[in-house]
Every structure is written in C-alpha cells, then in structure tokens.
Amino acid sequence: MRTAASTPAFPELEGRHPCFSITAAGHAASARLHLPVSPRCNIACAFCRRDFNDVEHRPGVASRLIAPDEAETIVARALTLLPNLAVVGIAGPGDPLASDHALDAFRRIHARFPDLVLCLSTNGLRLPDRIDEIVAAGVATLTVTVNAVDPEIQARIAPKIGWQGRGLSGRAAAERLIANQLAGIAAAAARGLTVKINTVLIPEINEAHVGEVARVTAAAGARVINVIPLIPQGDLAHLPAPGIVARARARAAAAEHLRVFSHCARCRADACGIPGVSDVSAELWGDGRVAEPTFSHG
C-alpha cells in the first residue's frame, strides 16, 4: 500500500470532508449535506435504479428534487441543525453535469457560504467541457465514477450514453465515456481540484479490473479511490453483492496505485448528517423519514 491507513491523505480535508477523510476519526468529525438538484442523467448504468422515496438508503434516491434557487435556504436550515456541517455535495439523483442545476446551486451557495467545502460527484462524461464552470462555481473536491478503463468491460456496465444530442451504444459509448473521464480528471487535477474515484465492484464483470482502474486514473491525476460493492438491482439484479474477500482483494489491488477510502456509507442524494453516524434528513426535509444511522455501503 502507498501509505498507512492511519495517515491522512489530505491533511487540509481530514476531519472536514467525510468522503475524503481516510482515518475513521476524521470521517466522523464533520457532517455533509447532499442537495438533490440534478434531474437528468446522460449515461445508462446497468446497476442504476433512480427513485423518489423516503425509505431506501442508497445512491440515486431522494425524497424529491429541489430547484437551484432553494439551495441557499436549505443550506442555512441545515447549518442550524448541524453546526459541524462542513461539506455541501451534489451527487444526484441524476448526473450533476447533465444539466445546469448543480452548478447554478453551487454558485449561489459559494457566494453566501464561502467557508463550506463544495463537492461534486459525476460520471465524467461532461467533465472536460464543464471544468471551467466547475472551478468558477467554487467546487473544491470532485468524485468521478470510473468503473472500467477497458472499453469491453465498460460496455457491459454502461451500454448506452447520450453524447452531443445523439445516442451511442456498446464500444463506441464506452470509448467516449472513458476518454472524457480521463481527460476530465486530468483537467480537474491541473486546476487544483482534489479528485477521488468511485468504482463499483461488480462480480463477473470488473472485479479483476479495479487495480487497472486505479493505475490509469492515478496517472491522470486522481489521488484516492473508493471501491463500492455492487447493490444488485436494475439489469444487474441477478448478480450477487461482492463478499468480504472480493472486496479486500479489489481494495488491495487499488492500493498499489491510490489511497483507498474505506468508510463509505450508502448515501442518498438528499442525505444530511455524518455518514454512518447521524442522519437529520427527516428534520431537514420534513419528510417524516426515520433516521437509520448505520447504512454501511462496504
């Protein structure tokens, strides 16, 4: 492994950003808020199932969409509930770069709350052509979901994408997505953003490929990776969730090239609190949802 797990990967973020804090203590020190402002997605992942409900604790789910002009009010309300709120992120329920909503919300929040860390999570398809907007909006940390750097593998994971007004499928879709992801990671790193990779660990498809994803994305400028076990759903509902041995092997392979983040929680697109520790979403959104503080994703 590149560095001991007890050593912070990013001292300036350790204890401030739960998803970029490598140590367990740092991960549990500050709260984050996810704003569900992104209505659309531009790729079709085989494992994805977006939904609106109050009961599931997983990515791609929110109680409702909010408009960008609601963002400031919601952040202000969250700060009254969580004085240790340090991060505002946008991670769905669609892709934040597939519409203008996320960047509009970030610009508003950055102007009013400049001390908050702004974090964007994207599939990376629009990353190269929107990087200047991302920087201008005040975003400091970036997560890019990269599930394969081999087009044959990627085509099985996201068989279709929407690109420049037309649909691409199969290998053509995979090649375009991978090229844009790597170019976007390099552009983000060059502009000073801290880049994390999310990789969904999928049995029978990419479980032997995670080390290569880490190697290639590290060369592009990423600095940490989060290996997320598959939630069997959508077109991959027939596959099992990867077991503890498969998870350990994949993370060990990734650790040859990147620091590994291992405290991930299965966060909703409207989550609010400390991941895996506290959840004040019901109070924030007024949806009556019962808090469930132990929804581990890995």
Score class of each variant (00 low, 15 high):
D95Q: 12
D95W: 14
D95Y: 14
P96D: 07
P96Y: 05
L97S: 10
L97D: 07
L97K: 08
L97Y: 11
L97V: 11
A98M: 03
A98N: 02
A98G: 01
A98V: 03
S99I: 13
S99K: 10
D100W: 08
D100Y: 11
D100I: 05
H101K: 06
H101D: 06
A102R: 01
A102E: 06
L103H: 00
L103W: 02
L103P: 00
L103E: 01
L103N: 01
L103F: 04
D104R: 09
D104S: 01
D104A: 01
D104K: 06
D104G: 00
A105D: 13
A105I: 08
A105S: 14
F106T: 10
F106V: 07
R107H: 11
R108N: 11
R108Y: 10
R108V: 08
I109V: 15
H110D: 10
H110N: 14
A111F: 04
A111Y: 02
A111T: 11
A111R: 14
A111E: 12
R112D: 05
R112S: 03
R112T: 11
R112H: 08
F113H: 13
F113M: 12
F113D: 12
P114E: 04
P114S: 06
P114A: 01
D115C: 03
L116M: 03
L116W: 01
V117F: 14
L118R: 04
L118Q: 03
L118W: 03
C119A: 15
C119M: 09
S121D: 00
S121M: 04
N123S: 05
N123Y: 12
N123C: 14
N123P: 00
L125D: 01
L125H: 01
L125S: 00
R126V: 00
R126K: 14
R126D: 05
L127T: 03
P128W: 05
P128G: 02
P128V: 07
D129Q: 15
D129G: 05
R130T: 04
R130Y: 07
R130K: 07
R130C: 07
R130G: 10
I131L: 11
I131M: 08
I131T: 10
I131W: 08
I131R: 01
D132L: 08
D132T: 09
D132M: 02
D132H: 13
D132P: 03
E133Q: 14
E133G: 15
I134D: 06
V135T: 07
V135E: 04
V135M: 02
V135R: 13
V135H: 02
V135I: 12
A136C: 00
A137N: 02
G138I: 13
G138H: 14
G138F: 12
